[in-house]
């Protein structure tokens, strides 16, 4: 476990060093005031910080990872609720979402209580939040308000919490190694985002969704998904999967990640914003960075649980 951890950390740091070096070379060639290069540098610098925080959370074990993703959920929920039509009449429902639902979800994930965390938000929060919203007696935009509040919880809390939930899977012969499932998921999905960006910048010409996300191209999608899935296959040795299984799962999660990005882009376009927030320099908000993980984590969790977990 520790040996693997050090090897993986070394690999990630090597990639970051190469990226930083390449960005410096580009900066020298294109000039320091090139906006694309400035954004690239900001993105890479933010990656150093994100990798450092992830590494610390991994070293702290289950509690560290659960707390890290609870904080991510809080930041994502804050971003999502900002763009909704929720009104003062929903105050109690929203307060409950942030200060009761979110902590209970992560508490049950930390306890590994599958029977609770897999239904708490889709069943209990889904039914109880609109009841709280009726207490004010205000019917204006009611369906819009309660739907948006439920969407906010599903996206920012339920889906995100399926990353640390991977720690509670019980896979024979893989005991104590579940952190590597999280590493696998995040590295494959995030490198797919990065590789889609790189392939798109190198070869991209056919726009794939011009009205939703003009920067996404077919060349970027195919190149990114295939190369990230090959990376996933190459990481099979840290997973309970065979090479082929690792490749197939990577294909599923990178495609989910791509379409997740598209869905979240559609929401941003509708609300007239470019980014969900501003806290991660170069990337935007937490949801901008997490959108692909949000859409892939629950699917990855359930496939692994269905085929590999003892239950």
């Amino acid at each position: 476990m520790n040996g693997h951890f050090i090897i993986l950390l070394g690999l990630v740091l090597t990639v970051l060093l190469i990226a930083t070096g390449a960005a410096q070379l580009l900066k020298r060639r294109a000039g320091a005031d090139n906006l694309t290069i400035q954004n690239l540098t900001a993105r890479i610098n933010a990656w150093w910080v994100m990798v450092a925080i992830m590494a610390i959370a991994f070293l702290a074990g289950t509690a560290g990872v659960v707390i890290l993703f609870a904080i991510c959920s809080f930041a994502a929920l804050r971003e999502f609720l900002t763009l909704t039509n929720t009104a003062a009449a929903d105050h109690w429902a929203l307060a409950a979402a942030v200060f009761i639902v979110l902590p209970l979800q992560y508490l049950s994930v930390g306890m590994g209580w599958y029977g609770f965390y897999s239904i708490f938000i889709p069943v209990y929060a889904f039914l109880l939040m609109p009841i709280l919203s009726t207490l004010h007696g205000q019917s204006k935009n009611f369906l819009i308000r309660v739907s948006e509040a439920q969407w906010a919880l599903m996206i920012a809390v339920f889906c995100v919490s399926h990353v640390p939930a991977l720690l509670s899977l019980n896979i024979p012969g893989y005991e104590g190694k579940n952190l590597f499932l999280i590493f696998f998921l995040i590295v494959v999905v995030q490198s797919s985002d990065v590789l889609q960006y790189v392939w798109g910048k190198l070869l991209g010409c056919r726009k794939i969704a011009p009205t939703l996300s003009p920067s996404k191209t077919l060349e970027g999608l195919v190149g990114g998904v295939i190369s990230a899935s090959l990376l996933g296959a190459a990481l099979f040795w840290i997973t309970p999967f065979s090479v082929l299984q690792a490749f197939a799962l990577s294909l599923v999660i990178t495609l989910m990640g791509f379409f997740g990005g598209l869905v979240m882009s559609a929401i941003k376009r509708d609300r007239g914003v470019k980014d969900w927030g501003h806290l991660i320099a170069g990337h935007g908000g937490f949801i901008d960075r997490l959108d692909s993980v949000i859409f892939s984590a629950p699917i990855f969790f359930h496939i692994v649980r269905f085929y590999w977990d003892l239950h």
């Binding site: 809080f74 804050r78 971003e79 609720l81 900002t82 003062a88 929203l94 307060a95 942030v98 927030g277």
Partner: peptide
């Protein structure tokens, strides 16, 4: 923090 609210809702 709408008027009369006791707890704040986190929003940007």
């Amino acid at each position: 923090m709408p008027k009369g609210a006791l707890v704040p809702i986190p929003l940007i």
